[in-house]
């Protein structure tokens, strides 16, 4: 039962991330929404799986999977956003500040 609650929460977060990736205007903001929501959502689903299987071989396997998922998604987001900036995509027209431009010179 408790696993179902976790999974439901996770899917709600995933849904939010999905709406974000469709609605937001430029690449940077899409990455913002998507990474956070989807990572937390999937971690939550995996936690639900841990509670479902209990302390067994499957449960510990999922416990191992959570840090891998966490690091993979955050580092992936970081590398992607840096790559996007170097690729030459401009910040959206709503943006107000850009300190990184100076640092690259």
């Amino acid at each position: 039962m408790i696993s179902l609650i976790f999974i439901t929460i996770g899917i709600l977060f995933n849904l939010l991330g999905c709406i974000g990736i469709i609605r937001l205007p430029d690449t940077y903001n899409r990455l913002q929404a998507a990474t956070k929501c989807v990572t937390l959502g999937c971690c939550s689903i995996l936690l639900g799986v841990v509670f479902h299987f209990g302390f067994s071989d499957a449960g510990t396997k999922v416990l191992v999977a959570i840090p891998i998922l966490f690091f993979a998604s955050t580092v992936g987001a970081h590398a992607l956003i840096r790559g996007t900036y170097h690729f030459g995509i401009k910040l959206g027209n709503k943006s107000v500040k850009d300190d990184y431009k100076d640092a690259l010179k």
């Binding site: 191992v64 891998i68 690091f71 993979a72 580092v75 970081h78 590398a79 840096r82």
Partner: peptide, 17 residues
């Protein structure tokens, strides 16, 4: 190579993989 963040994380995660 890539930035410091990627380097340090690959140290952690490479062994795991």
């Amino acid at each position: 190579g890539m930035t410091l963040i990627v380097k340090k994380t690959t140290q952690l995660i490479g062994g795991m993989i």
